[in-house]
Simulated scan of single mutants.
Amino acid sequence: MAQPYEVRAHNLSAQSENKIHDDTVARRFGFSGALVPGVEVYAYACHPAVARWGRAWLEHGSAECRFQSPVYDGDLVRVEAAEAGEGLALTLRRDGTVCATGQAALPPPVTPPEAARWEWRAPPAERPPASEDTLAPGTVLGTAPLEVTPAVAAGYLAAVREQDPLYAREGLVHPGQVLRLCNQVLVQNVVLGPWIHVGSAVRNLAAARVGERLTARARVMENAERKGHAIVELEVLVVAEEERSVAQVRHTAIWRPRQVA
């Protein structure tokens, strides 16, 4: 097993609309405090994959991450990566508690889906409330373009305490910043109460470059109740400059926790 990667967790979304990242609201749900977003937990978990395979992993690697226990602002997070077949088994802990598990691999490159064949819908000027109807299977969703300027890219690297010089040296966007667009698919299209990202399966298709505009094109694949939670699954294609496919993601979130229901 490679040397574990340690990073001090930081809640980037303390001021966001999603109040699960607010101390007071999160405590009402039984947590000790505000949750660090799952997309940032994923960002920490990606570090060993990039350390193992470098830029190649950003261009055609894969990863899957499931979140099991909260990570809180200021926690010292430890990411362990063990060789598993031709890939890595990932375990992320805080104070010995397993917070996330997953795997990363470097499969052969594939022909990316054609961005033009994926429907895109501009976010509405007035978002409707999240519901079984507005997040019905088959619903097409999209995000407004995000321009990843040098300042935006550098700010994210600092916020996730990324220690690998690859991104700044080669002008590449961090995979956590790419996955953030999958959350924006929900945030920009419906009004949500407190909600929780619970896992993602990612297939990288190309390295996103600093200076590019990124958008997400998505379709709701499933919206169902499990253990009292209302859970939505999205199939998302992240696209650079409206033509270059960067990542394909199966993104899962509890859009209405059972505590709210």
Results as ranks from 00 to 15, higher is better:
115 A>G: 10
45 A>C: 13
52 R>A: 14
127 R>L: 14
1 M>I: 10
161 R>G: 12
237 L>S: 04
230 A>I: 06
258 R>E: 05
113 P>H: 03
253 A>L: 05
79 V>L: 00
17 E>K: 11
38 G>F: 05
96 G>K: 00
166 L>S: 06
185 V>L: 04
34 A>R: 00
240 A>G: 00
97 T>A: 14
147 E>N: 11
140 V>E: 08
187 V>R: 09
212 E>L: 02
23 D>T: 09
118 W>M: 00
193 G>S: 06
108 P>Q: 12
37 P>R: 07
220 V>P: 01
257 P>E: 11
202 V>A: 01
46 C>W: 09
133 D>N: 14
143 T>V: 05
244 R>W: 11
125 A>P: 14
43 A>C: 03
217 R>Q: 08
182 C>I: 07
52 R>W: 13
257 P>T: 09
62 S>W: 09
149 T>C: 00
11 N>P: 00
121 R>G: 13
221 M>C: 14
153 A>K: 04
154 A>T: 13
158 A>T: 12
246 V>Y: 01
94 R>Y: 14
13 S>R: 04
23 D>K: 02
160 V>F: 06
84 A>W: 06
143 T>L: 02
33 G>E: 07
171 G>F: 07
173 V>R: 03
103 Q>R: 15
249 V>N: 03
152 V>S: 05
260 V>K: 09
154 A>F: 13
124 P>Q: 11
126 E>C: 15
196 I>W: 00
176 G>L: 00
160 V>A: 02
156 Y>A: 04
122 A>N: 06
183 N>W: 10
120 W>G: 01
72 Y>H: 14
226 R>W: 11
157 L>D: 01
75 D>T: 05
196 I>R: 02
136 A>N: 04
204 N>A: 14
229 H>C: 09
212 E>S: 09
260 V>N: 11
160 V>L: 00
161 R>T: 08
144 A>M: 14
59 E>V: 03
173 V>P: 03
101 T>A: 08
42 Y>E: 09
45 A>P: 01
67 F>E: 02
107 P>F: 10
168 A>Q: 10
116 A>N: 14
128 P>A: 11
15 Q>N: 13
175 P>M: 03
197 H>T: 02
71 V>S: 04
215 T>I: 08
146 L>D: 04
260 V>R: 11
80 E>K: 14
204 N>F: 10
93 R>Y: 10
149 T>W: 00
58 L>S: 05
70 P>Q: 03
163 Q>K: 13
232 V>K: 03
